[in-house]
Structure formats: C-alpha cells, structure tokens
Computed example of a mutant assay.
Amino acid sequence: MKEFLLVFRADYQSMPKASPEEMQANTQIWMNWIAGFAAQNKLSDRGNRLVSSGKVLKSDGIISDGPYTEIKESIMGYTLIKSTSLEEATALVQDCPILSIGGSVEIREISAM
C-alpha cells in the first residue's frame, strides 16, 4: 500500500462567511468524510486545517508574508491516505467536501526516502 498526500486548496477571499452553526455542520461533514477512510483502513493521518497567514522564506533569504498572496488559491489543509495507486487515490477523493465550495484536491504519492 502506498501513501498519498491530499492537499486541499480554495480561495480564502471568496469563501462565504459561516455562522457558528454552519461551521460546526461543515466540520462534521469533513469528519464524516475522513471517517470513511478510517473505516476502509486507508487513513494514515487525518491531517489538519491551516490558518490563512504565514511566511515564505526564499532561497535568497528574503522573507515575505504568505502564503503566496499573488495566487488566488491557498492551501487550506492536508490529509494522508493509503491506496494501491494514484488512480485509486483519485477515485477515493471524488466526494471531497472542498469540491462543493469550488476548491480542489491535489493528490501526490509520497516517495519513501
């Protein structure tokens, strides 16, 4: 079984403001989706959400506010799953909750070092 990193991306600026009740319901949708991987024994690490601010350190030593304000989509969070192939991993994430708000999922195989 291989491991895959799921990187969730969306535009922080265009996300609708949610009430506390809507945020709780959305969190439950995500938890149920992640639980589906656990039930199939395909969850390696449920991952976490990321805050919208940060810093970017470049090879020339320049530090700037991040993440990458010049691009529209930001990384919202990540999860690690187990799958036999990239094709299977892609099929497993077809119902990801981020897709319902116009976001995307990047699926990357982790190469053991």
Rank of each mutant, 00 (worst) to 15 (best):
Ala10Ser: 09
Met23Gly: 03
Lys42Glu: 03
Gly54Lys: 14
Met23Thr: 13
Ser100Gln: 10
Val56Cys: 04
Leu57Phe: 04
Met23Arg: 10
Glu3Trp: 00
Pro97Arg: 11
Ser59His: 10
Ser53Ile: 07
Lys72Glu: 11
Ala38Arg: 15
Gly77Phe: 03
Asn48Tyr: 05
Asn26Phe: 14
Lys42Ile: 06
Arg46Tyr: 04
Lys58Asn: 12
Met31Cys: 00
Ser83Glu: 09
Tyr68Met: 10
Ser59Trp: 05
Phe37Ala: 04
Lys58Phe: 11
Ser111Tyr: 08
Met76Cys: 06
Gly102Pro: 10
Glu21Asp: 15
Pro20Gly: 11
Ile110Thr: 12
Ser44Asn: 12
Asn32Cys: 01
Leu86Thr: 12
Ser111Glu: 10
Met113Asn: 12
Arg49His: 07
Asn41Met: 02
Ala18Phe: 14
Tyr12His: 15
Gly66Met: 00
Arg9Ala: 01
Val105Leu: 06
Thr84Glu: 08
Ile75Asn: 08
Trp30Glu: 08
Gly66Asn: 07
Ala91Asp: 10
Lys55Pro: 02
Asp65Gln: 14
Glu88Gly: 01
Pro97Glu: 02
Gly54Gln: 15
Pro20Gln: 12
Ser100Trp: 01
Pro97Tyr: 01
Met1Leu: 05
Ser52Tyr: 04
Ala112Cys: 06
Arg108Leu: 02
Lys42Met: 14
Gly36Ile: 05
Asn41Phe: 04
Ala91Asn: 11
Glu21Tyr: 01
Ser111Gln: 14
Pro67Asn: 12
Arg9Phe: 07
Thr90Lys: 15
Leu57Gly: 07
Leu50Glu: 03
Ser19Asp: 05
Gly54Cys: 08
Ala25Gln: 14
Glu21Pro: 07
Gln24Ile: 03
Asp65Lys: 04
Gln40Cys: 02
Trp33His: 06
Met113Lys: 13
Asn26Pro: 00
Val51Ala: 10
Ile107Pro: 02
Glu106Arg: 00
Thr84Leu: 15
Asn26Cys: 03
Glu109Ile: 15
Ala39Val: 03
Tyr12Lys: 01
Glu109Gln: 09
Ile62Glu: 13
Glu70Gln: 14
Ala89Trp: 05
Lys2Gln: 13
Glu22Trp: 10
Gly61Val: 13
Met31Ala: 07
Met113His: 15
Ser19Asn: 09
Ser74Met: 14
Ile75His: 01
Trp33Asn: 01
Ile98Lys: 06
Met113Pro: 10
Val105Ile: 09
Pro20Glu: 10
Ser100Met: 05
Ile63Cys: 06
Pro67Val: 12
Ala112Leu: 08
Pro67Lys: 13
Lys72Ile: 15
Gly47Pro: 07
Ser74Trp: 09
Asp11Trp: 01
Ala18Tyr: 05
Ala10Thr: 09
Val51Tyr: 12
Ser100Pro: 00
Met31Thr: 04
Gly47Gln: 13
Ile101Arg: 08
Gly77Val: 02
Asn32Arg: 14
Thr79Ala: 06
Trp33Tyr: 11
Met76Asn: 08
Gln94Cys: 08
Lys58Ile: 03
Glu109Lys: 11
Arg49Trp: 11
Gly47Glu: 10
Gly66Cys: 02
Lys42Ala: 02
Ala39Gly: 08
Arg46Cys: 00
Arg46Val: 04
Asn48Thr: 08
Met1Asn: 06
Tyr78Gly: 00
Leu99Met: 07
Val105Ala: 03
Ala25Ser: 01
Met1Ser: 02
Leu6Arg: 09
Leu57Ser: 09
